[in-house]
Amino acid sequence: MSNFYGKIPVQNVRAFLLYQKEGIAQKLIHELKYKNQPEIGIFVAEWFGETLKSLGIFTDVDYIVPVPLYIQKLKKRGYNQLTMFGKKLGDVLQIEYKPNILIRTSFTTTQTQQQRFERFSNSNTKFKLTNTLIFENKHVLLIDDVITTGATLEACATELLKTKNITISIAAMAYTQKN
């Protein structure tokens, strides 16, 4: 996935499933995200985590950090679809899950119906670290559900890079191929 090449320094980027319109990954993530099915996140994390572990990937990661939801969206939905995924991935890989250190400070509408350009131009979403020292000299695994343009992950990574001597890797449940 070259979405991040030349944009932000990331050590490693991995995604587990291919996200296609009307495909199984789309259906799974839709159920997880909008139908309160956290067991899907647990299932994917367990399978993905065991695969990563068997390949020796992310063995030097210190923390798992989820892409955060805006507080109003979190209240409306009632949960972040990445929570159970991140916790289980942390259990499998023996990495501490650290939510609420990276927070979203602005709201964007859902990107599920937007075209690639619209998604990328919507990347002015702001993120903020609540603690600028916790990730100093650490390797952080930033997680998301789907990598499309990479704009949201890039915005998160840009904020994380304000931390001294941080290393960032990215993992997602799925990714989309460029059209």
Rank of each mutant, 00 (worst) to 15 (best):
G86T: 03
Y19M: 04
L32F: 00
L82F: 06
K21F: 08
Y63M: 10
I143L: 07
M1G: 03
N100F: 12
G90D: 08
V92Q: 09
L129C: 08
L82D: 02
N122H: 06
K164T: 09
L69F: 01
S169A: 11
I42T: 15
T125D: 07
G86R: 10
F127P: 10
Q177T: 11
T109Q: 03
T112S: 10
R119Q: 07
L55A: 13
I168D: 11
L142K: 01
R116K: 15
F85A: 01
H30I: 06
P68N: 09
Q11P: 07
N124Q: 11
I166G: 08
L18N: 02
T110M: 00
I24E: 15
V146Y: 02
N36D: 01
Q81G: 00
T59F: 04
L17M: 11
K88V: 02
W47P: 00
A15F: 09
R14C: 10
F135H: 11
N12H: 08
G23F: 07
T125F: 07
L18G: 00
T51S: 14
R77E: 01
T105E: 07
E22Q: 14
F58V: 11
F120W: 14
L161F: 07
Q81Y: 01
T158E: 14
Q26W: 00
V92T: 12
S2R: 15
I103S: 04
I168H: 05
K53N: 11
P38N: 02
A157Q: 14
Q94V: 05
K7R: 14
S106Q: 11
W47M: 13
S121G: 02
Q11R: 11
Q72M: 11
I101C: 10
K128Q: 14
Q111W: 03
E136V: 09
I8D: 06
F4A: 09
K27I: 08
F58T: 13
L55I: 04
K98I: 08
